[in-house]
């Protein structure tokens, strides 16, 4: 592996170069020092490597959903190559993406656990004035004490801390301190989306997220996040068993809806995935959602033998 070429190159070739570095690092055949020399030689090398590493990381999601494949229906758009069929089926369950890193390291000391099946929602009073509301297909652990510690292992939860209560929330991205208030935490791939309904979240580096703000975190600091205020009703909609959409793609809508459904809805006609939807739908049953799709776009829903629902154009 020789990548010490400081001469300018078209970015497509840099991608190949960066991919070669990543493959070599992954296989353990490249030295970290040689790699650092290459990366630091040109900012465009670092850009290309970040882009490659990004796709590399995204591919991890395929592995995580692969474990869920047995419970999934066969998509109508299923592939014909037998060797890969199970993978594509797994891909239908976009909703099943889970956190990748850190799981083992940070759960060791947890004491209590609550988990939910697909479509289930549970509430628990983890301490006299600490309430956890756990969304579908989720797992939460906690340990009483000072501070009260919470681990979001999978899925999504709402946290309510009464007066005088504080908590340390551990997610793969890092550990965050929650003041008394109401919060929503959801794992999205390797990232964690934290929303402050009331109260405040701080990190170890004194970054702060205030009431009404939402951040998608991939690291343990709040310093580089974009807080936004407009989405709180949508973030908390699940607690009312609803899904709120405003212009998202059908792909996204299905990923959200499928989180709640044991029998997943899949797109049978790829052209449909770019449709954009708005509205509020019940997550307890897909019927209303499917009716809206039919009324607005003429989309037909066919229930397969396994119970899965395939969408096609009429």
């Amino acid at each position: 592996m020789s990548g010490r070429s400081p001469t300018p190159q078209p970015s497509a070739d840099l991608i190949e170069e960066a991919a070669a570095w990543l493959a070599a690092l992954d296989a353990g055949t490249a030295s970290d020092a040689a790699f650092a020399t290459w990366r630091d030689a040109d900012a465009r090398h670092a850009v290309a490597f970040a882009e490659v590493a990004s796709t590399w990381r995204d591919l991890d999601a395929l592995r995580l959903v692969a474990g869920e494949r047995d419970s999934l229906p066969t998509a109508a758009a299923a592939p014909t190559r037998p060797g890969r069929r199970h993978v594509l089926r797994a891909a239908a369950s976009v909703a099943a993406v889970m956190a990748v890193g850190g799981g083992l390291a940070y759960r060791g000391e947890a004491r209590e656990t609550i988990s939910t099946r697909v479509g289930e929602r549970r509430s628990v009073a983890a301490a006299p004035s600490i309430t956890l509301d756990v969304n579908t297909d989720s797992e939460v652990r906690w340990r009483a004490g000072r501070p009260f510690r919470l681990w979001l292992e999978r899925g999504e939860m709402a946290i309510r801390l009464g007066r005088g209560e504080q908590a340390a929330l551990c997610v793969p991205a890092g550990t965050f301190r929650l003041a008394p208030g109401r919060y929503n935490a959801r794992l999205r791939g390797e990232s964690c989306e934290l929303a402050v309904i009331t109260g405040a979240i701080t990190d170890a580096a004194s970054g702060r997220l205030g009431a009404g703000e939402i951040a998608l975190l991939s690291g343990d600091t709040l310093g580089a996040v974009v807080p936004r205020a407009a989405d709180l009703p949508r973030v908390t909609a699940w607690q009312r068993d609803t899904l709120m959409l405003s212009g998202e793609s059908l792909d996204y809508a299905l990923a959200e809806m499928n989180r709640y459904l044991p029998h997943k809805i899949v797109i049978g006609d790829p052209a449909l995935s770019r449709l954009r939807l708005g509205g509020t739908f019940a997550t307890t049953s897909p019927a209303e959602f499917l009716r809206a799709l039919h009324a607005s776009f003429g989309i037909e829903a066919t229930t397969g033998r396994g119970g899965g629902i395939v969408l096609t154009r009429a």
Binding site: D58, A61, L62, A91, V97, R228, S249
Partner: peptide
């Protein structure tokens, strides 16, 4: 964040 997350987890496209 929804749009971002949806864009990032385009598993079907990756497949």
């Amino acid at each position: 964040a929804f749009a971002v997350a949806a864009g990032r987890s385009e598993l079907r496209r990756l497949e």
